[in-house]
């Protein structure tokens, strides 16, 4: 089983990621993360499986499309084809802040140590790093900066509001 980072710790991953539409080859039990297409087409069938279900999205997905299903997912993953594609950052904030998703939100694909700080502020709490990255060494990235001006999923109040309430 692969290692991932979740809640700032390295853990063994229990989920199986189905990269492609499996067409009939779906394992009957176990936790799987399926592509959005498959979920859209087969959500009822998928619900009869044993094991939990997750879905993975490309960075340009419309979060409204899965808004009604959010509580049925054990994980939502967002796949970065390139770490420089910031659409995934907006998608994560929308899922968290607009649609109220509280479950695991995982960044997958071209995910590098130096992206973790921004991604976690946008609401990702789990990360499957690119194969050449060392998850243990990457953990320090969350502490690269200790303070930030803006609102974020991690700290919804911007610095100026926390200042004014005397929390600093």
């Amino acid at each position: 089983m692969a290692q991932i980072i979740k809640h700032r710790a390295v853990i063994q991953d229990s989920w199986q990621l189905l990269e492609q539409d499996p067409i009939g080859a779906l394992p009957f039990s176990g936790d799987v993360i399926v592509p959005l297409d498959l979920w859209t087409r087969e959500s009822d069938t998928l619900s009869f499986r044993l094991g939990r279900i997750g879905v993975w999205l490309e960075v340009d997905a419309d979060p409204a499309a899965i808004a009604p299903d959010l509580d049925r997912f054990g994980v939502i993953a967002v796949r970065f084809a390139q770490f420089t594609d910031g659409r995934g950052n907006s998608l994560a904030r929308l899922l968290r802040e607009r649609y109220g998703y509280r479950g695991e939100l995982r960044a997958i694909g071209d995910v590098l140590r130096d992206q973790l700080y921004y991604l976690s502020r946008c609401g990702f709490d789990a990360f499957t790093l690119r194969a050449d990255q060392d998850p243990q060494q990457a953990l320090s990235a969350f502490d690269d900066l200790s303070e930030a001006y803006q609102t974020s999923v991690e700290r919804p109040q911007p610095l100026f509001r926390r200042r004014s309430k005397g929390h600093l």
Binding site: D85, Y118, S152
Partner: peptide, 13 residues
């Protein structure tokens, strides 16, 4: 400046 500096959502436009 403060709002834009290290904005987590808009670092990769």
């Amino acid at each position: 400046r403060q709002w834009s500096a290290l904005h987590p959502e808009f670092a990769y436009l």
